[in-house]
Amino acid sequence: MERLSVTLCGWKLDNPVIPASGTFGFGYEFSQFYDINMLGSIATKGTTRERRYGNPTPRIAECERGMINAVGLQNPGIDKVISEEFPKLKEVYHKKVVANVSGFSIDEYVECAKKMDAEDIVGIIEINISCPNVSHGGMSFGTDPQQAAEVTKAVKAVTTKPVFIKLTPNVTDIVSIAKAVEAAGADGISMINTLLGARFDLKTGKPIIANIMGGFSGPAIKPVALRMVYQVYKAVNIPIIGIGGIATAEDVIEMMSAGATAIQVGAENCRNPYACKQIIEDLPKVMDKYGIKTLEEIIGRAHR
């Protein structure tokens, strides 16, 4: 399967397919469907310093070719993630993960990133400065280049593993944020997180999501993600993990053409638990169809 492999900051992945944070739990739920060791890696659920319950329900609203979620970073807190969730994952999964971390202050990011850095199972630390669900903190870090840079610098100062900053699309100029985190020392960029959205019940006229707004994702957002990855690839020299609306092997090829070195699959895992497996199995024949020998050779080919 050499033709599928890609390298992220010196870490060789068997293939570029990584389930996205928040849509794959801590991985082990999916081992009842297939052998998750076939995945390139796994991005684990957004982890915070303290345990969080998240937002009230309803947290999910269906949309055309996508969904809105307002989970609000429900997670057991970093210590439990390390002492309980990672061991459960290690029983069924033998590769390294992309550990997604969230925070409401620079201190919190720093503390969580430091703890993740010490874990063998962590290959990359992914800093979510973009979750649109939480009313304080999260949002502002990702929408202001200066604050985004500060988080990056602070996390880089306490870690040895590659740090990827996960960007929010809910900004006017994503390139300025990407450049700021690169200048602050980020090893890579994950993009995009969800787009802020809302839905209303036709009978009552009221919001479907208890929190009113939530993060919109799924195939419907793919063109937005492709456009942003294309713009950012042009402006930075660090690798990009492309995220947003990926559901098929064709989508992977399109996202890598725009500039992604690897990709993540989010909402599609909810809709179809076998999504990542099917994408990986389909890749060779779709590559054949388009005359692609190796995936490495198509990264950013839109720019050549």
Binding site: G22, T23, F24, G25, E29, F30, K45, Y53, G54, T57, P58, R59, I60, A61, M67, N69, V71, Q74, I208, A267, N269, C270, R271, P273
Partner: peptide, 21 residues
């Protein structure tokens, strides 16, 4: 409850109980 995945991965359907989430 409104569900995303239906099999435990997305935390869309959480509820608080006296013995935890």
């Amino acid at each position: 409850e409104r569900m995303g995945c239906g099999f435990g991965a997305c935390m869309g359907c959480s509820c608080k109980t006296l013995t935890g989430y």
